[in-house]
Amino acid sequence: MAGALSPDDLAARVPDGALIALPPDNSLGSVALTLALIRRRARGLRLFCVPVGGFLADLLIGAGCVAEIETSAVSLGEAGTAPRFTAALAAGTLIVRDATCPAIHTALQAAEKGVPFMPLRGVLGSDVLAHRPDWRVIDNPFAAEPDPILLIPAVRPDFALFHAALADEAGNVWVGRRRELATMAHAARDSLVSVERRISGDMLEDERLAPGVISGAYVTGIAQAARGAAPLALLDEYPAETTVLRDYARAARSAEGFAAFLEQRLMPAHEPA
């Protein structure tokens, strides 16, 4: 396992135009890796939000890193609408592919199984489906009566980017019960993970830790980043800094306000090592 990589080292591995899976704001999003992508001036990224986007997606969009976003929603939750997402959509500089939460999960579950698609109930009659030429409705081949059902094609992200509480010497990371992150990591070609702490040993040898582990088989890069999720929450370790998120929602209504907030409030705390 590589020694002391920084978030910037991991961001350097993500080429422009990559398809990147991100967790939602309340579930181990990596602000450290997001800011590293902004520092490396990534361009043309295609975001795949699992299953919704928020602060992380809005930061990347505001910094000009994103060409496309597939998501079931973009919101800052209690802090309100995502201002740079909304502005980019209005300006026509962002391709938005609307989905619905279980379709996002299904696309990744198909990829982790290595099958080309998986069926999903519901969604019929939604305009989300009408705007997804890549989704297909077939007649359930096992039903006696006509039974239209949706097929979602597998999505294999180039990278899954997230933050984990722990990494061990064997290259495993611990995310706890947030198993949709495991699906994301299983489906992605590479998983780049910032971690709060490193511990000795192998967590897969510990029956109590193992169920919350994502195996090092999927993890291709780990960077140490204490408080790497802040100002978002990290499980029960630290809560979201709601005043920072509210300040962001207000400041980022303008491109200038966004740039100033990024420079003054976010970047100083995350200088490259």
Partner: peptide, 25 residues
Amino acid sequence: IGTGEWPGSEARFPGSFGSAFMYLM
């Protein structure tokens, strides 16, 4: 989703979340 041209050129709402599935199921 929003109003205006798809996906919300006049007003953009957050997005559909899981509603397209939950409402039917």
